[in-house]
Every structure is written in C-alpha cells, then in structure tokens.
C-alpha cells in the first residue's frame, strides 16, 4: 500500500474526530473526538516514519500516546468533578468563563 492510503485514512479519522468535537455536546464524546484526532495524527506520523525508514515519527507517536494518556487522566477527572458539582456533562453548560 502506498503512503497515500494511510494519509487518506488519517485524514478521514481526523475529520471525524474534529466534527465530533464540534457537533456533540456530551463532554465524554467530545473527549473521544479529541482522542480520535490524536490517533489520526499518530497514524500520519507512523506512515511517514515508514516512508522515510526513520524512527523519528514513531518516537513522536510514542510521545503523543504518553501525553494522551496523561491528558485522559486529567480530563476525565475534570469531567467527573464537573458532573459532581453541576449535574451535567454537556459542554454547552460549562460557560462560567463567558464574557
């Protein structure tokens, strides 16, 4: 398979993730969209890594996975505590910082 196919798949995943973030209100689903975008980026990294035959891209992908794991921990904790205090997980209701 050519690198184009991988990139097409990565782009498709990224767009799905981005649309998820933009249109869904449930924070957990939004979160999933973000994960999807991150993994789309990872896929692109790996594809290019293979294409050039170097490890830099895979290294970057590993970093992304570590950061994503940490982010999930913090993000889910925030969502849980938000749910506890405000009884909702809708991102549209989290608007305390509005002008």
């Amino acid at each position: 398979m050519t690198v184009t196919a991988y990139l097409a798949l990565a782009s498709a995943l990224f767009v799905i993730g981005a649309v998820t973030v933009l249109v869904r209100r449930n924070s957990i689903i939004v979160f999933m969209g973000i994960e999807l975008m991150l993994n789309a980026a990872n896929l692109a990294f790996l594809a290019f890594s293979r294409m050039w035959g170097e490890l830099d891209g895979q290294l970057a992908a590993l970093f992304v996975m570590v950061v994503a794991a940490a982010e999930v921990v913090v993000g889910l904790a925030i969502i849980v505590s938000l749910f506890r205090t405000r009884r909702t997980v809708s991102v549209d209701d989290e608007n305390l910082m509005r002008h």
Binding site: E94, N95, M97
Partner: peptide
C-alpha cells in the same frame, strides 16, 4: 472582541480549527 468569549466550548474549538 469580548463578544467572542461566548462561553461555548465548541465555538472555541471551531475557532481553533
């Protein structure tokens, strides 16, 4: 400019995108 701070996370995300 402050009107852009509308409190909708999704609109921020759209702006970023």
């Amino acid at each position: 400019l402050a009107r852009l701070q509308n409190g909708f996370v999704r609109s921020y995300a759209a702006t970023m995108l």
